[in-house]
Write a protein that binds this DNA or RNA. Structure first.
Lengths: 109, 109
DNA sequence: TTAAGTAATCGTAATATTGCGATGTGTTAA
DNA sequence: TTAACACATCGCAATATTACGATTACTTAA
């Protein structure tokens, strides 16, 4: 036991849960907000920005890249990261749909 | 090591990450969608609906209750659950703000 | 009362995540 | 070439999450 039983749920449910998982760490939120704020490719200064070890930062970047939310381009010796707008907007749309689905819910108990 | 270093991040970043964590399991997404679909208090039939053990289902319900997304009322021998519309809408607003923050981001690399 | 039902909690095992030092790979500057 | 730098990956330890059987607390029906 211990592993999530993905087969019990719909593809959509697993998808939304995985999207949420990508956002489920403050370091990853911080990375995304930083990239959004800069509104451009950011090279190098992410490790100092976060305060986590280089290895840990790299791991969070990898997860965001796997989720598709960011993309990295090799720029000489360093790597530049930026938001992937297409996936970003898709996330926004899917979470938006999930929550507006019940905007008019009634408080019953 | 192993524990999230919450003190490195802002209150808002930790808050968003915690909100995402509440959604980061397909069973919890399934529970929320079921409650939204029924649009009413649901008593009892959540265990059969999910296919997980009673103890596991109860644990997921507790997490959603802790997050504030659902509320439970004792109705005789069973417990009725429903969406907490206030918190639900707050989630929608916060995630919405997070993603619309960068709607006009440019693809740079 | 007792028996059956519902649901929370406890205890524990399996697995996943987080974090970091050490190491490896590739790039640039000297 | 060599030295310094940037970043990914490996390996491991600490912690968190997921899952479930067993137990407990409570309600209802008989």
């Amino acid at each position: 036991m211990g592993a999530t039983k993905s087969d019990l749920f719909t593809k959509q449910q697993n998808e939304i849960a995985n999207m949420a998982k990508a956002l489920a760490h403050p370091a990853r939120i911080a990375i995304l907000q930083y990239l959004v704020k800069k509104n451009a490719c950011v090279c190098g200064d992410l490790v100092e920005e976060l305060g986590l070890a280089q290895a840990t930062t790299s791991q969070h970047l990898k997860e965001l890249k796997t989720a598709g939310l960011i993309q990295g381009t090799i720029e000489g010796a360093s790597v530049c990261y930026c938001i992937n707008p297409k996936v970003w907007n898709q996330y926004g749309k899917i979470f938006g749909a999930f929550f507006t689905e019940a905007m008019d819910i009634k408080s019953c108990c």
